[in-house]
């Protein structure tokens, strides 16, 4: 288990797209080893929040610290922070022209400057962890959605990040494939990885989260332990939202 203490600090962050304010004064602290699940209606700013933490989106006010380094738009801070964070996208975003193994080896070889043999070993070990060691030589389009998403998770893990961000990792999957991906994520959570997961899979949230966050209109409306969050949500908006997604 990683030592406790804040590893991500988001302080009063506001982000705008032109006139439109996508994040309103968001403040969030995540400790090392903590698993945060973020939910909220579509357009509430969930993706924008984790993309800001990841440096994929600009924010105009506030500050973000990752593992002690302040996130800025310059190369130096990017180079310090990027390798600490892994990101898994809704659309997998695998490299279609590379085999599964090559997808996994690219980061270690090109940006971590590992030797090819060592990188291949590493890739195979993470493929075993996401339970698809036999697909190493295939191309992404030959795999099912669930397998592709597991490859994407393994690709991030090959960079050996301290923090993993997931943006609706199962939303693009057929229902029968959701569990194979959630199982891999649950295992990852049990191994002590710091995680922020945007998802509406509330079963998964109950199993792994130690903090639940509800967002609406660019604000964090509610932030609580899973027990409190699911039994007695404070705000009406959150109650309303949970009603909808738990009983459909």
């Amino acid at each position: 288990m990683a030592a406790p203490g804040p590893i991500i600090q988001v302080d009063g962050v506001s982000a705008y797209f032109g006139e439109f304010q996508a994040l309103r004064q968001v403040t969030l602290t995540v400790n090392a080893g903590q698993r945060v699940v973020v939910c909220g209606p579509s357009g509430s700013g969930k993706s924008t929040l984790i993309r800001c933490i990841y440096g994929l989106e600009l924010f105009q006010e506030g500050s973000i610290h990752v593992d002690g380094d302040q996130l800025a738009r310059d190369r130096k801070s990017m180079r310090a922070i990027r390798p600490k964070i892994g990101m898994v996208f809704q659309q997998f975003n695998l490299f279609p022209h590379l085999t599964v193994l090559e997808n996994l080896m690219l980061g270690p070889v090109r940006s971590r400057r590992m030797a090819r043999d060592a990188a291949r070993e590493l890739a195979h070990s993470y493929l075993r962890r996401v339970r698809i060691p036999e697909q190493a030589e295939k191309y992404p389009r030959q795999l099912s959605g669930g397998q592709q998403q597991r490859v994407a998770i393994a690709r991030s893990l090959c960079m050996e990040p301290k923090i993993m961000l997931f943006d609706e990792p199962t939303s693009a999957l057929d229902p029968e494939m959701i569990n194979e991906v959630l199982d891999v994520m649950t295992e990852l959570a049990e191994s002590g990885m710091t995680m922020i997961v945007v998802t509406h899979e509330m079963g998964f949230a109950r199993r792994v989260a130690d903090m639940m966050i509800f967002m609406d209109h660019g604000e964090i409306v509610e932030s609580a332990s899973p027990e409190r969050f699911f039994s007695a949500p404070e705000s009406a908006r959150c109650q309303d939202f949970l009603q909808k997604i738990l009983h459909h």
């Binding site: 990027r82 390798p83 975003n93 695998l94 490299f95 690219l106 994407a152 690709r155 960079m159």
Partner: peptide, 26 residues
């Protein structure tokens, strides 16, 4: 697709590597 750049960013590839290994081959 923009997602290809974001994926390249997610494994810390430099601009040159992103172009040579990810974008140009496609």
């Amino acid at each position: 697709d923009k997602g290809q750049y974001e994926a390249a960013h997610s494994i810390s590839l430099s601009y040159t590597d992103t172009m040579i290994c990810v974008i140009l081959p496609q």
